[in-house]
Amino acid sequence: MIKIVVCLKMVPGKLIDAERSGLIINPYDLFVLEKLAEFKKTTDISVIGICMGGESAREGLVRSKALVCDDIYWLNDIKFAQADTIATTKTLSAAIKKYIPDADAVICGGHAIDGETGQVPAELSEKLGITYFSSVADIESFGHDSAVIVKKDEGSEMTVRCRYPFLLSVDSFLTYASNLNIIALKRAQKWEYKIISSEELGIAQTDCGAAGSKTKVINSVNIIYKKESIEVGGSIKEKADHVKKLLQQ
């Protein structure tokens, strides 16, 4: 059995759809879950989800469980909150080392659609000491001792065989789940999710959350400065001519 860890982040639904409230599974993570759900039909894989999040993450975790996850570690503690990428990496790394130290593969969405730093996957691979593959567009197969992936980056498209263990950063995304069925969803809703506190994880306070962060947002500034615009009146032709004149200058 091939053990695969998926790092999950729940993000504001309104980032994809202004009407949507609450949190959704980060679209890049969702692609990974759907992909693994397909593989599960033909390959002997075990999928373990890890997610740092508060109570609002529950709905996304239920869907993740329903889609493909055999097990989920829910890192839910106020002490984990307000973590920057360094603190997030240390927390996820501690959880993986403690609960799934023999993972064959760790797969992360390339970036979260809130935040968008895209730093955690590489940082995590460094902490775990495993090979890192970025810009993964697709996974072709999971073999006995290696997997085959497709990497698409700035200059090339490569098919690569990667020996376990490794960490993938996936650049493909999905905004809706297609593999979700009602029965699985109902079962997932009834399931008991393992909530892991910082004590249970055994992580030092200075290694997680705001206390473990190395960066901090001190404030925000408005960058869109309003201007007084000159309105061009007249007929459509006059307006068009005005612009043509401006371009000729």
């Binding site: 990428t85 360094i86 990496t89 730093q119 995590l124 460094e126 890192y132 810009s135």
Partner: peptide, 20 residues
């Protein structure tokens, strides 16, 4: 892409702040 990975590796190894 290369620098993003390199800087992430570095920041993680030395546990220093990294702004993207």
């Amino acid at each position: 892409d290369f620098s993003k990975t390199l800087s992430s590796f570095f920041a993680s190894r030395f546990e220093v702040g990294l702004t993207a």
